[in-house]
Write a protein that binds this DNA or RNA. Structure first.
Lengths: 234, 234
DNA sequence: TGTACATCAGTGAACGCGCGTTCACTGATGTAC
DNA sequence: TGTACATCAGTGAACGCGCGTTCACTGATGTAC
């Protein structure tokens, strides 16, 4: 077979080991959370000595940074793929939930309480803007025509730098923040185990929130059924 | 002065030292989060040796348990006092926000990602039911008359043991969960610092969510303006 | 194709750290007669 | 009021642990002629 890949065997091996380290790191995080992540433990698990990992990661923080980056990247790609497949805002929301439930600690690493003593890198903002962009597209599309402006939308019209030049109208920005915080509210309490003991189904609550955000698009809506989507204000 | 208090000087001293330990523990948590809490560091800060603290707390987990208990107790009392003073659901929500902002790590200790390796005690459920009861009262009062039943309310009618026998109608249970998760969504992202960089005011978002939950009680509401409160379903 | 050299993965010993926790002990405070 | 005893707070030394990280070194893999 023709050797067309640009990577040398050594590079391929490096990437392979790096990938395995991160895989073990994810396993460890899934078990005990990110703050319990230990380089030595990972090395032990791989049958290597601790210092060996310093060939692959500068230090512990660097490894965590890579994990955060991977998580962001993965979520961005997941949502982008769904959107490319025609998913609307509701489908994206369900995709987010599925992504969170697939690996709760991965979700919490990104959106939960920050890891103590760890300083997040800045270059994740590019990816999180990518995520925001995908959702803002969906939010813009989900806006019912003629939705009234609101105090929140007005406020966001003056503070939209975080949208990174996305052309979404202020009402879509408001909808985005509303969607994000509501879904996160359900998800984070569910993942942190605060619903265990209460016996209801968290998915019912999630679906309920989704339904409240995205009223069935009744074509004959008119002013009698103001959708809450994009309202978000007093 | 008459000695009417039942506590001996030794007991009073004990309670005093216990209180100071917990005070220092809160300071430490406020700085570095609960997982960084260290008995030795607290002792050092108090000018004592580490082992001395074992006169007051059985071990580290026991101290954390007391902190959790204190936080729950404090929140329950804060909300109960507000409710006794005539606060409605909106005022209680604002009280919750104020309580969270007063000591973010205290809020996150109770409602955030669980402390790794720490097993929460069971007897906090009594206090958290107390909190739920206060909010359920307010939710029941906030329900617009004739609010339609919803899938979520129907589901909760079958799963209401967590309400501990509170007589709230299913729609109030649904409203409670909706309020709780929405406010937590905004608060937890705000406290975890996920809004920094985006320059908008988190309070505007909080107020917006509150307004969406509690539409101005228009006496002439009728069917033209279905309140979202208590809906929460499809 | 073979030899000389450079590159790089991985090891093992070691450093310093802080932690939770135990234990035997000292000294002060309170209690009983 | 004074003496004998019990209670309890706090100390200092010690144990064992695991961590992140550095360093000098070995041995294998790749490269240049």
């Amino acid at each position: 077979m023709a050797r067309t890949d640009p990577t040398t065997p050594r590079e391929r091996y490096r990437n392979q080991v790096r990938a395995e380290v991160m895989e073990r790191a994810w396993e460890q995080i899934a078990t005990a959370g990110a703050s319990a992540l230990s380089l030595n433990a990972i090395a032990r698990q791989m049958g290597m000595s601790g210092p060996a990992l310093y060939r692959y990661f500068a230090n512990r923080d660097d490894l965590i940074t890579e994990l955060v980056r991977e998580a962001y990247r993965n979520l961005a790609d997941t949502l982008a793929a769904a959107a490319a497949g025609g998913a609307d805002l509701a489908a994206l929301a369900r995709g987010l939930r599925a992504w969170a439930l697939a690996d709760p600690q991965r979700y919490l690493l990104v959106y939960g309480t920050p890891v103590p003593g760890y300083q997040a890198p800045e270059d994740t903002t590019a990816v999180s803007r990518e995520i925001a962009a995908t959702l803002l597209d969906a939010c813009t599309a989900a806006l019912p025509p003629g939705a009234p402006t609101t105090p929140l939308a007005g406020h966001l019209a003056d503070h939209r730098t975080w949208a990174g030049g996305h052309p979404a109208p202020p009402e879509a920005l408001a909808l985005f923040l509303t969607v994000w915080t509501r879904l996160h509210g359900v998800l984070s309490l569910e993942l942190a185990g605060h619903f265990t003991g209460m016996r209801f189904d968290p998915e019912a609550l999630f679906d309920s929130e989704l339904a409240a955000l995205l009223p069935r698009p009744t074509p004959a809506a008119g002013p009698t059924a103001p959708s809450e989507a994009g309202r978000g204000g007093a």
